[in-house]
Amino acid sequence: MNILVCIKQVPDMESKFKISSDGQWYEQSDLTFKINEYDEYAIEEAVRLKEKLGSAEVVALSIGPERTKEAIRKALAIGADKGVHIHDDESHKKDSFQIATIIASYAKDKNFDIIFLGMQSQDRASAQVGPILSELLGYNCITTIVSFEYQDGKVNVKRELEGGIKAKVSAKLPVVLTCQLGLNTVRYPTLPNIMKAKKKELITINVNELLNEQPRVINLKAYIPEKKKGGIILEGKSDEVADKLISILKEKTQVLR
């Protein structure tokens, strides 16, 4: 079985964001980057499948600048077999269609049976790459999966809908799956595996070799939204803040008298 996992490096969402000098994106220096949370579930699920099957190859692919290699190394340390770094210093300027195109041109002649991705990235949050990729490759595609099982050439998954409802769906291979929060619990890469990952193959391909499409969405600008004021902000010693809060609740709600 050939498995591809696509991962992206994103900043920690609890960071303080600034807008970059070109006004198009957030300033990337001074941020700590990590693997997109949704993609971590994708890696874990791919590695679990490989462990279950005994024989399978898991390729971890990421598009981005040099630092992206760190994310790939982590995927290798978690258990992927081979890394593919598509070097692109401007990956943040690519729209979802271009990203999907890059992945598709890499994957088209490799016969992947299953491609795992996160359902969305934490920064861009478009939730498009997986389904577009499936269209470009002509694969089946199921999004937002919260449970996964492989049996006899078919995948059986639960796809999350709204309000606590899930749809049980099965699909034939080849298939693109986008992973949702809670699909699994991601392991820590162990130190021996970090060391082993060092010896695993990590190839680099320049993005220009894989992309000659224009973006379909133009990014005009990025900005920090104005704070909607109105809410009262309470700060200081717990004791005093608690008293203040209680008096506000007594005044403004009917639940406390």
């Binding site: 900043p11 969402m13 957030y26 379909r216 969405v217 005009l220 990025a222 900005y223 920090i224 939204p225």
Partner: peptide, 18 residues
Amino acid sequence: EYIVPFCNAKLRRKVKPN
């Protein structure tokens, strides 16, 4: 031109179709 949130709604982008 459309406004979309990003980075967990801490930021916004303005975009348009090409």
